[in-house]
Design a protein around this nucleic acid. Structure first.
Lengths: 199, 199, 199, 199
DNA sequence: AAGTAAACGAGACGGTACGTCCGGTCTTGGT
DNA sequence: ACCAAGACCGGACGTACCGTCTCGTTTACTT
């Protein structure tokens, strides 16, 4: 017995959905996150405002979905990290790539916007964890697990914790702008994590 | 030579300033960050809107100052961490206290509000680092330096990095709600940091 | 030969038609004319909006038909006014009845709704004259004609004009709320008309 | 002690008030009454919507005031009807003028619109009586009183009733489109009224 | 002490966007 | 084929705030 408040999604217009997400993406790039309004999205997408309110609970949710659609189309489904057998080299590669990504001004604004939204919206945060963070984290944990089996990491290491030690300092430094994000910084974090979780 | 656009702060009404900061604090706790508006702050403080716009450049700045006033009144000037000689025990104490603070629902809403503002405003972020984070970080680094001299930490350890490894995972977990904040988690982070920066 | 845009009325659901008219009546009485919407009528009648748009050209037409149905069911076909031979007494009776009807709050709202529609819609006004006003007016004129033959009214009196002098002041006073509608007022109007059209 | 909900009209912008009334008048002529929206008035007047909502309780009230401003600027304050000493001639003149006015298509739409609004809005009806109808009615009654003193009308005639007998049939015929408005019709009404209220 | 200039409370102003409601059209399944 | 249900585009509604702009009124510093 479905919730009778929920619209029947079988009737949903895929055409409108796509137009809304596309318009949202375009507007974020053009005018910046803070100035994106439901009104503007609807006008740009050639859609009634009600069609947005019918399917999304908040502006944050629309914007989030536009991110999600982007990452899905780009990332494909199964993400795999390189595995050369040398965990240190592989992690350095991945961490340096992450540093580069955060430094890219094209990504900077949207990601900050997303984080600002997530801070105050638990639902959005949950969606972020499930839909955006999890697939990537799973891939990283797969690589770490392979390193455990190869005896390069402590067998009892909590992989979620390993990920936090690797990424959280980077994330916080970026979010609060407490310092520069350099390739050397990425290397330092890899060193620290490997030392902490050495077998 | 002061900027002639700048109002003469000698004429500033301390009474109004206090009322605005107090009203801001109250509103954040009561109705949440999203619903705090300049209009509401002015009404609550019994103040004209212009008085806010005269002295603060943005809503974020008001919110930030309301924090600053709080921390200044509470924290005093010179913060010192306990130093029993046992760095592990001392860090556990401090980290457990931090965990408790983040878990306190009374602090939760304001801190999230502050972070939402900081993410998208570099000026505010800089003020945050200087006025709010630095004094606390300095105190923590002083304790870590004492541990270095006692041979409990590598002499060449970058103390900023140590702080990041200790606190960033905690901060990220709280911000993204990726997991529970428990005393055990605090202990884990201490263990990891000490292992990574062991002499 | 029906207009080929007109749906085949042989297929029309009598059940839906009744439900729509009944819902319209109920809504006018309950929430007042301003809040009657096609949307609300459809919901109340358990009918799709399209079913209303298929059979009626405008909201006014639906409202009008809801009246028509009522008057047809109530009024029967042949209306006859009392004829005691004394035109003054008979008119007083009828006029006092009309005053009472207008003063009845149960009739007030629907009649006002009907008039609001009629004012701006010539088609509706024509229908009103033909379907609602004419039968009643014919009956009144029959009684007046009988009075003419009895020598109680000028033989050359324009009966439409007599009706206007009788009823228009009453109608205008009600429509614009310019004064109270009392039995004495009804009597005055009868006096005036009889004096004006005396043989 | 004034009602503290009422805005302080000493602060009111006369410039905005005029712009709103002028825009309203223009829009009624251009797009017709039903399609006039607060949104369009505000845009046309170069005014925020709130400025309209602050000073008028409803769309009907704005439209009414735009009529009022027009009639005040046109009619001046003291209206006087011609008094040649011959009440029949004077009334015929005035009634024929009224007939012509009702027949003028430029007046037709707005007056119908106003009436449609008045039917369902008692407050508006009261304003109509006080501000628009009364000054004109007072002038008419002054002329009738002069006729009474000249012995051309019954001394005890209720002048409000006389006005109703004169004007209501005309008004009703126009409103419901029950017949043509001709100069002869105007004359008939004068005859009838004079006969009914003969001394 | 009087004069003056800035800050003050109040709140109207032109605007933008909100989230809701309804009009009228179109589509989908069910009978 | 008609129906109920309801999604769709469009557009107006009335509200909340934005940041700016007067109003008179303190308030504090000249003169």
């Amino acid at each position: 017995m479905p919730n009778d408040r929920t619209p029947d999604s079988s009737r949903r217009s895929e055409r409108s959905r796509q137009a809304i997400l596309e318009a949202t993406r375009a507007l974020i790039s053009e005018v910046g996150y803070r100035k994106v309004s439901i009104e503007a999205i609807a006008a740009r997408a050639g859609v009634g405002k009600q069609t947005i309110y019918r399917w999304w609970p908040s502006k944050g949710a629309v914007i989030f979905d536009s991110f999600l659609a982007l990452s899905e189309s780009a990332g494909g489904e199964g993400i795999t990290l390189p595995d050369t057998g040398d965990i240190e080299a592989d992690l350095r590669l991945v961490m340096r790539a992450t540093v580069a990504e955060f430094a890219d001004p094209a990504f900077e604004k949207p990601i900050r916007a997303l984080n600002a939204e997530i801070v105050n919206d638990p639902d959005l945060a949950a969606q972020y964890r499930e839909k955006l963070a999890r697939p990537v984290d799973d891939a990283k944990k797969a690589r770490l697990r392979s390193a455990q089996q190869a005896g390069q990491l402590a067998a009892d290491a909590d992989l979620d914790l390993v990920l936090e030690v690797l990424y959280a300092p980077l994330f916080q430094r970026w979010l609060h702008r407490t310092g520069p994000l350099t390739p050397e910084y990425a290397d330092s974090l890899v060193d620290i994590a490997l030392r902490a979780f050495r077998p």
